[in-house]
């Protein structure tokens, strides 16, 4: 039951129209960051206000919503955003990836492959992939306009010079449809291959930074690399301590103060289904 004191999905219709227009331009120019007039939301920046605004603008009454935080359905951030939309939109929610029509995510792509009937919304802290290399917005904007991405290749090269390999392990930069370099949000690089040729629509919202960008389905997304140092999707070299999966992305959990640790799936739904033998 939704809270009738709020408009459907919290935002007013004028705000939704503005966000919807930005999403459509983002779809039309895949990987380009569309500026939008981000609103103050009833949660602090850093809690996914960008993702929440995109979800609110795209959500329909018939949707089934799943919210994950680092792959988990049961952490504070995921639970509070799920409750927010239960209350303001009255939509059904689920923790099952294959039952969801909309998934809002913080920093993971579900292990279960997405389908063409789903929309994945990412919460993005810093949308500009070049930001830590070039702090000036005027310059990064020109870099994108000219597709002058040499600086990023130099950064990856410096990784190799220092560490012998590309040490960037999350927010690994990608090239979208042969044009824009994009920050896929701080997902582990393990998830990067799932961005490519994905049947689902992928939308990215950065609330504090006021940017929306998008990947239409079946868009070619290439992780930047070098011929002699090709991209590799890495994960901890263990099996999950709960479900035994050897292929899913793992979190390292410290279990005591004597060096004890365990590795468990970061995707709680996948882990639970796999433990039951059903994934």
């Amino acid at each position: 039951m939704s809270d009738q004191a709020y408009n459907f999905a919290y935002l007013d219709e004028g705000t939704k129209r503005m966000i919807r227009r930005a999403i459509l331009k983002g779809i039309a120019v895949p990987g380009y960051q569309v500026p939008f007039a981000s609103r103050e939301m009833p949660m602090p920046y850093g809690w996914g206000t960008g993702g929440v605004q995109v979800t609110a603008a795209v959500l329909t009454p018939g949707d089934v919503l799943k919210v994950i935080d680092q792959g988990a359905d049961d952490t504070t951030n995921a639970v509070s955003i799920r409750k927010f939309f239960q209350r303001t939109a009255g939509v059904a929610t689920t923790e099952r990836t294959n039952e969801a029509t909309m998934i809002q995510t913080r920093h993971r792509i579900p292990e279960t492959p997405l389908t063409g009937d789903q929309i994945l919304v990412y919460q993005v802290p810093i949308p500009e992939p070049m930001r830590f290399l070039e702090p000036r917005e005027t310059e990064t904007r020109r870099i994108h306009a000219l597709a002058d991405y040499g600086l990023m290749q130099v950064r990856l090269y410096e990784d190799i010079a220092r560490h012998g390999e590309i040490a960037t392990s999350y927010a690994y930069p990608v090239e979208v449809a042969g044009r824009y370099v994009m920050d896929p949000s701080p997902i582990p690089k393990f998830d990067n291959p799932k961005l490519d040729d994905c049947p689902a629509i992928q939308l990215f919202g950065a609330g504090r930074e006021q940017r929306i960008y998008a990947l239409p389905p079946y868009t070619h997304v290439r992780s930047l690399d070098f011929e002699d140092h090709p991209f590799t999707a890495s994960k901890a070299d263990h099996a999950c301590a709960i479900c035994g999966s050897g292929t899913s992305y793992l979190d390292e959990v410290i279990t005591d103060d004597a060096g004890g640790r365990m590795f468990v799936c970061s995707d709680t739904d996948y882990c639970a289904q796999n433990a039951k033998g059903g994934a």
């Binding site: 999905a9 039309a28 795209v58 329909t60 009454p61 629509i201 239409p216």
Partner: peptide, 19 residues
């Protein structure tokens, strides 16, 4: 119903533009 009609209509437009 502006909110719900608009939501359904936008989903249709988004789907058409994305596919």
């Amino acid at each position: 119903d502006a909110a719900r009609d608009g939501a359904h209509a936008f989903r249709a437009i988004l789907t058409a533009m994305a596919r």
